Simulated scan of single mutants.
Amino acid sequence: MSEYYDPETYPQAWNYLQTGTIIDQYMIERELAHGGFSSVYLARQLEDQVQVAIKEYLPRKLAHRTWNNVVTPNSDESKTLYLRGRALFFEEAKVLANLKHHNIVEVINFFKANETVYMVMTYDYGLTLDKILLKKIIPMNESFLLKVFNDLLNGIAEIHRQNFLHLDIKPANILIRAQHDPLLLDFGAIQSFPVAKNSNRTKVLTKGFSPVEQYTNQTRLGPWSDIYAVGASMRACLDYKPPVPAPIREQEDTLIPAVKAHKTKYPEYLLKAIDWAMAVQPEDRPKSVAELQQALNGEN
């Protein structure tokens, strides 16, 4: 038998840690989500039974889980990339452990085990904004948008104050808690700012939400890059679908401005703020969170 589980024969064992697995001081309850580089689990602290979320580094193109849960690179060629990614994941955990804000997911612990690394976060109840939009669970209106995105921008401002960029803001990474209280999730694309020109960080791109400058190494990233993603997330709330991807808009912008497309439902100041944040070229956008918040509050 192969030393690791065949994903076709044992799909469940391959994809995630099993219920009841104990890692460090936590017991896994179930998987919450997974992507190409990691999985997120609901777990409990053994000492006090408090629920937490645990993110495990496991890039499935580079590594696999063996029968005893040890994560191993797929080949000698993939080992270098795996180890570099693991180091970056650990650095991300260190950064997040020092980022404390009500609207930013809180990292309470991080550790190495099973030849990989784990990030432990507080577990919050709510629904991600993409699911809310898909099922139209909450009616979109001016008060909802202002509450959610003003609070979210407060958290983003703290990230920028500490000289970091999130670079993956989108409805799927915005958890809406009770009283429409947002929480920004998933800092897998985080970079320090100013970003080094020859940065070796893997690009994280989401069609419709990533600005044009994230697609190239020629244009400088900055707070305005996160601001585009915030504007695009707000526009998704108006249209109930992702906006036209930025590179397509750069070639030929067919996106009807919000001030025209939604003028009968929302006030002009709000729609103008969204259009400003979503300007294709970085120099045409707000340069800071404060500028965008002033526009959202009708102060421009």
Score class of each variant (00 low, 15 high):
S2G: 13
E3G: 07
D6I: 00
T9C: 08
Y10T: 10
Y10Q: 13
P11R: 11
N15Q: 13
Q18C: 07
I23M: 09
I23A: 08
Y26P: 06
M27N: 07
L32C: 06
H34I: 01
H34K: 08
G36H: 01
S38Q: 02
Q45L: 09
D48V: 09
D48F: 04
Q49K: 14
Q51C: 11
A53I: 07
I54T: 05
K55I: 05
P59K: 04
K61N: 13
K61R: 11
A63F: 00
R65T: 01
N69L: 04
T72V: 12
N74F: 02
S78R: 02
Y82D: 00
L88E: 11
F89N: 01
F90P: 02
V95D: 01
A97Q: 12
K100E: 14
I104S: 06
E106N: 11
E106G: 01
I108P: 07
V117T: 14
T122Q: 15
Y123C: 08
Y125S: 15
K136Y: 12
I138F: 09
L146S: 02
F149K: 02
D151F: 10
N154D: 13
G155L: 04
I156L: 15
E158Q: 10
I159Q: 00
R161L: 15
F164W: 05
I169G: 00
K170F: 04
I174C: 08
I176T: 01
P182D: 06
Q191S: 09
A196H: 13
K197D: 10
S199R: 12
T202R: 07
K203R: 11
K203A: 15
T206L: 11
K207S: 12
Q218E: 14
P223T: 00
W224P: 07
A229Q: 07
K241A: 15
I248M: 14
E250G: 03
Q251R: 14
L255S: 11
I256N: 10
I256A: 08
A258K: 05
A261M: 04
K265Q: 13
K272D: 12
K272Q: 10
I274F: 02
V280Q: 02
P282E: 09
E283S: 12
E283F: 07
P286V: 09
P286S: 13
K287Y: 14
Q293M: 09
L296A: 01
L296Y: 02
